[in-house]
Design a binder for these strands. Sequence first.
RNA 1: GGCCCCGUGGUCUAGUGGCCUAGGACGUCGCCCUCUCAAGGCGAAGACACGGAUUCGAAUUCCGUCGGGGCUACCA
Length: 488
Amino acid sequence: MSMTTTDTVRVRIAPSPTGNCHVGTARTALYNMLFARKYGGKFVLRIDDTDLQRSTKESEEGVLEGLRWLGIKWDEGPDVGGPYAPYRQMERHHTYREVVSQLLASGQAYYCYCTPEELDAERKAAMEEGRPPRYSGKCAHLTAEQRAELDAAGAKRVVRLRAPQETLTFVDLLRGEQHKDMAERGDFVIVKSDGSPVYNFATVVDEHLMEITHVFRAVEHLTNTFDQLSVYKAMGWKPPQFGHLTLMLNPDRTKISKRAGAVYIGEFREMGYLPEALINFLALLGWNPGTDQEIFDMDGLVQAFSVETLSKSDAIFDIKKLDWFNGVYIRSLSVPELALRVKPFMERAGFDVSDEARLEAAVALVTDRLNKLTEAPDMLGFLFTKDVAISAESFAGKAKIGPEQILDALKQADGVLRQVDTWEHGPIEASLRALAEAMGWKIGDLLMQVRIAITGRRVTPPLFESLVLLGKDESLRRIGLAIAALEH
RNA sequence: GGCCCCGUGGUCUAGUGGCCUAGGACGUCGCCCUCUCAAGGCGAAGACACGGAUUCGAAUUCCGUCGGGGCUACCA
């Protein structure tokens, strides 16, 4: 894209501290970071906590943690500081207050004493009559005396900005020229009755003071932009460039929500997704490289990123595709690396995986079989416990092979395996294959019985490797257990 | 209701007037490989929301309709 200014690029992500990092926030943060890296700029993280009630330090940490886990790094922020500190709106109240008094002094803003009830009634009436709801501006002409009276009476007051009575225009980086006639908007609140600034106001002050050059945010803010432009205009400030990103949607095309599945980064982590897979998936949801390439690491994304190929239509969050990405990344990991990632999931499932070599040997069997880390305990659990529940029911299945045949097969397998001196893949396989042939069974049918006997499952890692890992004694022990279970 | 944004297979998308009998990926289905399940290989089905207009020619331009979404707060 062409830079319209020679200034250093400065972009930002401004999450509100909700305790969790939303995927939408993460993706917007990603695009901003990629843009900054691409153009050698700075990426700022600012906490937008003008909603004092909901904001705590802990809820802020949740958001940062989610972003960090994904590998999103910021150059300036509440945790790392920076030349434009503080980076929490809560700590910038005096700054907003100064700007408000300037606006008040110049007559571009005024106190409004209307009660919420009055305003509600007006809004409702307007809607019913089919008029756009718009503040009447009745407090705009209050005299100093009238205001003094109201203040003395203890009336609550907010500050409203006089909306410019004209059409405001800006060029959206994705959507081109945008217009809005502010006359139909009316004067809007910039300071609440509790003295705290409204988002649309605070964000302008911050963007300006932090010298933000480009604002990439979700389309839901597109209309807000005009309120913000009004503030820039009133203060005589030069607005940054805006680009409004698409939304992520539920499968039913509504805005992505908890109801339809996971939406917080922490949840994806717990579900066994790799951060690099999530990032890759998110990046391609709303942007494309213009080529057929689909797999990108962070550096690759920076290289390929461009504003031109950011898409304009909303995208459904398709978790099936995320699963595929996750599988791709799992398969690309080295065995030791995958073992490291799998470890906490095994532990949480109650397995003792302190034997690193054993864990790695086990993991090596399932790299091609895992789509999510959470699947590991199910697939590998039998290798890390002595307590495998095998019953006659475990063998229920194919009608063509009856219980007596299974019992017989296992007894023969037991006999044959006992003869195997070097407990390795080759000899084990040879003995079982020979047995199958002698019995006139398909090898798969025989192996399935052994498989069930030692794992209790029909779907498992490859059998010979599993037997090797289990060891001769334990393997025979389990087969014996299975025989016993089938005998009564 | 008003204002605004968006509209290519089930999903993410390529496509910027002829290269399109609309390409890729996920998913789905079939086949191969195979000790189960995967992974991998090969193949198939499947889309330009609709209607007008412009043009020799439209997925691509314009208008309208329809559909989805957003904003219209003392939420962000």
